[in-house]
Amino acid sequence: MQSHIEIDAVEDEPTGLARFYATARRFMRNRSFAIGAVLFGSVVLVTFLGPLLTDVSPNALSMRNRFQPPSFDNLLGTDNLGRDMFARVIYGAQLSLMIGTSVVILNAIFGVMLGALAGFYARLDNILMRIADALMAFPAVLLAIGIAAALGPSSMTAIIALSVVYVPRTARVVRSSVLVVKELDFVMAARASGATDFRIIMKHVLPNSMAPMIVQLSFVFAYSVLSEAVLSFMGLGAPPTVPSWGILISEGRAYMREAAWLTVVPGVAIAITALGLNLLGDGLRDVLDPRMKVEEG
């Protein structure tokens, strides 16, 4: 325990706006979280403000302006049909982020639920984990391609396929930390007080299994954006009229030698999103740990 002066200093919890600022300051002090927040925040901002940033339609053809390198007229150049790459990347972000978010939400629901059940109930563990083993035996992208091919190309298909691929992985991660946490004394204390299994899982086990969960979910988001690009690239994602980042790379690859910006620009967009999210996830894990609070004093 530190000195008593310090303890009395942080006595009453601040309320309202002051509390919000204090929390925000604590979050931004974590470098990983700060960089990740800036990177991912700007991606989200550009995605939603996209239509305001450019008045060019992403699908407007201009045969005279084919393969223009980046310039003031076309910030990121034009493609083989003279379409503005800046507009196309911005509009493509919407689809990519939508798919990533959907997959993460499905993972947070089903992956965490199944993982918690498998970790908490030894009887369910064997069944659930053997199913997970079966699904994980396939290489991730191959399984996603298989499912997407069976269901037919659409963005919904991509979401379902990617969820099937990543839910067992998330469940695995959650299960392993649930297995550790459920043996701790405070879980036994809760049971001794008459808490129901549901309460024990929600209040005691899952909150203490959060660190690997957050990192895993930020991983899943980044991988979904990447894998959606792969599915789209293979023609199994969204129909090509809607440009997603994967489709942009797929279309540009034929002209990689002559017009590298067609593949590099959406590629960099994917890289920034994935990097931002991973940093954000790492930072979030540290910041949400109540033990970290003590360091600011």
Binding site: A192, S193, A195, K203, P290
Partner: peptide, 27 residues
């Protein structure tokens, strides 16, 4: 009720002291 040996493992680190103390009543 029960009091445990290890005071480090027997309190949920994510809860405040008040939540910990009242947990038997909430349960």
């Amino acid at each position: 009720q029960i009091i445990f040996q290890d005071p480090h493992a027997s309190l949920n680190p994510r809860m405040t002291v008040e939540e910990i103390i009242l947990e038997p009543l909430y349960a």
